[in-house]
Computed example of a mutant assay.
Amino acid sequence: MDRTTLSAYDTAAAAFAQDWHDQPPPSDLHAIVDSFFVQGTVADIGCGSGREVAWLAANGFPAQGFDASDGLLAEARRRYPQLSFRHAELPDMDGIAPASFDNVLCETVIMHLEHAAIAPSVRRLLDIAKPGGVLYLSWRVTPDADLRDKQGRLYAAFDAGLVRAELAVAQSLLDEQVVSASSGKTIHRMVVRKAG
């Protein structure tokens, strides 16, 4: 992950966690999970404060959360001590074996990566899904040029074709640009099924 972005999350983890928990529930994301995920385990890559890991676990999907920010992981463990959260950083995600999870969820994370890390991160996200498993991937859309918000977080501008090219080996189930029900921001999201 971009180091300035990671530092922002570590420094203000409690404030970010509270902001996310104060947002409306992501009912659109939950509907996608219900529609496309297969029964089984879920890896939430970039789990932040653990909100979606908790929702997944409460709705029949045994889930593990992974994040690059130790500050956010501390918030997740404090809020949900009964759930599992581990450190892992895109693109390598050391310690996660290939074909480990039935489903992989990566919600608005890859736009925080430097351009050179985006394609290998998408490949690795698909890699950790089991054959026949499902990957949900979304990112916040930044038109024209990269930008940083007032906290210093990077929002990389890139074409969706970059992600499509890396996921071309999988079956496309959903590919759309929408306004998130939770954040109110424009996001692009894709759902694919890994070849069995």
Rank of each mutant, 00 (worst) to 15 (best):
V53N: 03
G46R: 04
A31N: 12
A76G: 12
A76M: 07
A68W: 06
G40K: 06
L56W: 05
R78G: 07
G40Q: 10
I45H: 01
F36Q: 11
Q39I: 00
F61C: 06
D44H: 06
S35G: 04
A58K: 13
G60S: 06
C47R: 02
G40N: 08
E52L: 12
A43D: 02
S49R: 03
L72R: 05
R51I: 15
L73K: 05
F37R: 12
E52A: 01
V53H: 06
D44Q: 06
D34E: 15
D67W: 06
A74C: 02
V33D: 04
A57K: 04
D44K: 08
E52N: 14
A63M: 03
G50C: 08
I45T: 01
G71C: 13
A58T: 07
G71H: 10
D70F: 04
G46H: 03
N59P: 07
V53K: 06
S35A: 15
F37H: 09
A76D: 09
P62S: 08
A54I: 05
G48M: 12
R51Q: 12
A43L: 12
V42N: 01
G65R: 09
C47K: 04
V38I: 14
I32H: 04
F37E: 08
S49M: 07
A76Y: 02
A58Q: 14
A76E: 09
L56I: 01
V38H: 06
G48D: 10
A68H: 07
L56E: 03
A43V: 00
S49E: 15
E52D: 15
L56S: 00
D34V: 08
I45D: 00
W55H: 14
A31R: 15
D70W: 05
L56V: 03
G48V: 11
L56Q: 03
A57S: 15
T41F: 01
Q39W: 01
A76I: 12
I32Y: 02
A43T: 00
P62C: 08
R79I: 03
A54Y: 09
G48S: 10
V33Q: 04
G46T: 08
A74S: 14
I45R: 00
A63D: 01
G60D: 05
V53M: 03
G65K: 05
G71M: 13
F37Q: 07
S49D: 15
R77F: 01
D34L: 13
G50E: 05
Q39A: 14
S69E: 10
A43E: 01
G71A: 13
N59I: 04
G48E: 08
V53E: 02
V33K: 06
Q64N: 08
V38T: 13
Q64E: 14
D67L: 08
S69W: 10
A63F: 02
T41Y: 00
G40I: 09
S49N: 15
P62V: 08
F61R: 14
R79D: 08
G48N: 09
V42Y: 00
L73Y: 02
F37Y: 10
F37D: 06
R51V: 13
R79T: 01
A58S: 14
D67E: 09
F61M: 05
A68M: 09
F66M: 11
A54M: 11
A74N: 10
G65Y: 05
L72K: 10
